[in-house]
Write a protein that binds this DNA or RNA. Structure first.
Length: 670
RNA sequence: GGCGAGAUAGCUCAGCUGGCUAGAGCAUACGGUUCAUACCCGUAGUGUCGAGGGUUCAAGUCCCCCUCUCGCUACCA
């Protein structure tokens, strides 16, 4: 087999704060199929995955759990992440953790190097910090004096921070993207990056933090820790032996630049803008391709632990097995749109594709060989015209699969493999072996038919292996055949004539009953819900009516005090209870609702950005807390004469403030 | 509001640079078959190819406009 050269693939590193659900698991399985296929083709593959383990969220979660951050991430990696990756039978070569010492050391050196060459500079801030976003902003970045990311208040923070001069490299990056159309995949994402970030002008990026400790310290200024993206993205080079002084490990020379970074579509921006610019600054070549895959969504409703409907890979595996789970993930995910997963859908795919088309095909083929010839498979050369089409489909599958894989269309590739199996089923129908069996003079023809089927299955199983490793192996084993070399997959007739298939064929995938599965699912859901409630109770945060939202607040929200105000200052603010008597959506906006609020005898028109949480119908009748003496402003062309007060969590979810006991409209809030 | 993508059979979608009676999978109905995990194979379908204009000998495929959906982004007192 010809050596086709080196191939380096990375997944995004998983944030080590919780157990990954099935959607997170998709990425590693997708990457695994790609890598296994490349290896089969003859590439020298290096497949890297790992975990991102720093940051304030983990620091807080660890505190809540009463352990150190390192103990916390050690546990998550050991108990929640690696077991899932291994359970899914993924063949990664390297699992990097951002707490690994070589990584931390290199991050410090990288930071220093970029600082020394002037790409990173120290800035000081006296008022532009957004706590929820953990972000500093320059004056020019603020929108109406608020955080451009979340729209919330920024406030004075007398902290210094380091910044990266993004703008210095922007032109080079634009040039690179324009001259390398394959760089950002799918291409629809390219325009979004260009139009929204690159062409309007890149802002400098803050690359250090002083507000928390759980990170890699800046070694020449230890108040600071390196901010997440410089730390996390660099794993792609530190994991293969990059050294900021140029004393690289062997793998670095072999595998960098990476052939592909497989990531979720939500972090495309960081991988196609910041990461390439960091690399330019380091003087290293850019990765060849960034592939932002879509999401796998739970059908209909949002995944929520409190509802017990989060689908985890291990539950899926316990119900269907590893390969069935892999099959579903790989097959059901389109190239450019989000995919949907429901238990019913998984069962349907399982029965129709795995049990019926594939499993039954193998079983009927082996059964016939046993029944008619004691398991011996022989080629007799008694061919007929129908054989030609079978052979051309079977020997042509490698090329079509390769073409799909080259375009990262894994779902289409696996569909092509199944087209081969479908063709085999059709061939059985065309040749009617059971009819041949009744005619003693046609025994040789029957042998040839079964030989053709067996040979087709060997080729099919070999092509299936990168996607479903165990199943491919099982098929080959039942056929008593060796895995076919990649270069031979377009040749027909290599199965040694006279070899014997197993006399005890095993069912690959037993058909499932939807109702039985759904009963088991109910048990899983109940357990998940119970575990969730127990966890909530244990952490003393149980809140019966807020169960749905509570999980989003995994930790209490940290904040910093604003400058002290006097009672006189407070007196200036006039809060009252108001009753919403009418409400409608603001036409020109996606997030705004316009409410008529009765406060005493007055009616104020107030515009609020809470359409995500409340429908106009829900709003009517609510008695809420209103700031009534705010200077009127026009929003999206509609005048707003006050402000409805809400509580807001770290994700920006809002909840209106209401009074604990019923109070009349106009009641003072003081 | 800005930029972009899309609207095709009940469902999920394919249809490249315009060309014969518009396709695949699943689901449905009917038929065939019995080697096999009641499987597999075949046939049938309905589709105003989102609405309306236009270019052309010819448009799902190009142009204009409208409606709706989605993504990114901005605004969100």
């Amino acid at each position: 087999m010809a050596d086709k050269g080196n191939f380096y693939l990375t997944t995004a590193i998983a944030y080590a704060s919780a157990k990954p659900h099935i959607g997170n698991t998709y990425e590693i399985v997708l990457s695994d199929a790609m890598c296994r296929f490349k290896r089969k083709q003859g590439y020298n593959v290096f497949f890297q995955t790992g975990t991102d383990e720093h940051g304030q969220k983990i620091e807080l979660a660890a505190e809540k759990a009463g352990v150190t951050p390192k103990e916390y991430v050690d546990r998550v990696v050991k108990e929640d992440i690696k077991p899932i990756w291994d359970l899914m039978n993924t063949s990664y070569d390297k699992f990097i953790r951002t707490t690994d010492d070589y990584h931390e050391k290199q991050i410090q050196k990288i930071f220093k190097k970029l600082y020394d060459q002037g790409d990173i500079y120290k800035g000081a801030y006296e008022g532009m910090y957004c706590t929820p976003c953990e972000s500093f902003w320059t004056e020019s970045q603020l929108v109406d004096g608020k955080c451009p990311d979340c729209g919330r208040e920024v406030h004075p923070a007398k902290e210094e921070a380091y910044f990266f001069k993004m703008s210095k490299y922007a032109d080079r990056l634009i040039e690179h993207i324009n001259t390398h159309p394959e760089f950002i995949q799918p291409v629809s994402r390219k325009n979004e990056m260009m139009n929204n970030f690159l062409l309007p002008g890149l802002q400098d990026l803050c690359v250090s933090r002083t507000s928390f400790d759980w990170g890699i310290p800046v070694d020449f200024d230890d108040k600071h820790v390196v901010y997440v993206w410089l730390d996390a993205l660099s794993n792609y080079i530190t994991g293969i032996g990059y050294d900021a002084d140029g004393d690289h490990g062997e793998n670095y020379g072999k595998f960098w630049p990476a052939d592909i970074h497989v990531i979720g579509k939500d972090i495309i921006r960081f991988h196609t803008i910041y990461w390439p610019i960091f690399l330019m600054a380091l003087g290293e070549p850019l990765p060849k391709q960034i592939f932002g895959h879509p999401w796998l969504l739970q059908g209909g409703e949002k995944m929520s632990k409190s509802r017990g409907n989060v689908i985890y890979a291990d539950d899926c595996v316990s119900l269907f097995g590893v390969d069935a789970t892999r099959y579903f993930l790989l097959h059901e995910m389109p190239f450019d749109n989000d995919g949907i997963i429901t238990w019913e859908l998984v069962v349907e795919r399982y029965n129709s594709d795995l049990a019926n088309i594939l499993g039954n095909l193998l079983n009927r083929t082996i059964s016939m060989s046993n029944k008619y010839f004691g398991g011996v498979v022989e080629s007799t050369g008694v061919t007929e015209a129908v054989d030609e089409d079978l052979k051309s489909v079977v020997t042509g599958t490698r090329a079509s699969v390769e073409k799909k894989m080259d375009a990262n269309r894994v779902a289409d590739a696996i569909t092509d493999v199944f087209a081969l199996f479908r063709r085999c089923n059709k061939y059985i129908d065309e040749t009617e072996p059971w009819v041949l069996a009744k005619d003693e003079t046609r025994k040789d023809r029957l042998k040839e038919v079964l030989y053709n089927l067996t040979e087709s299955l060997v080729i099919g199983a070999t092509l299936l292996k990168p996607f479903l490793p165990e199943t491919g192996e099982k098929i080959l084993s039942q056929l008593n055949a060796a895995e076919r070399e990649y270069d031979d997959l377009d040749k027909f007739g290599l199965y040694p004539s006279g070899d014997k298939v197993t006399d005890a064929p095993e069912i690959l995938f037993a058909r499932l009953d939807v109702n039985e599965i759904m009963e088991k699912v109910e048990v899983i859901r109940a357990a998940q819900k119970a575990a969730y409630e127990a966890e909530q109770a244990a952490s003393g945060e149980v809140s019966a009516n807020a169960a749905d939202k509570a999980e989003d607040q995994e930790a209490a929200i940290d904040f910093e005090l604003k400058p002290e105000i006097t009672f006189d200052d407070f007196e200036k603010l006039q809060f009252r209870m108001g009753e919403i008597i009418a409400c409608e959506a603001v036409p020109k906006s996606k997030k705004l609702l316009c409410s008529q609020v009765k406060v005493g005898s007055k009616v104020l028109q107030i515009v609020s950005g809470i359409r995500k949480e409340y429908t106009p119908e829900e709003m009517v009748g609510k008695k809420v807390m209103v700031l009534v003496n705010l200077k009127p402003a026009t929003l999206a062309g509609v005048e707003s004469q006050g402000m409805l007060l809400c509580a807001e969590d770290a994700e920006g979810n809002l909840s209106l403030m209401t009074s604990e006991k019923t109070m009349p409209s106009g009641a003072e809030v003081c």
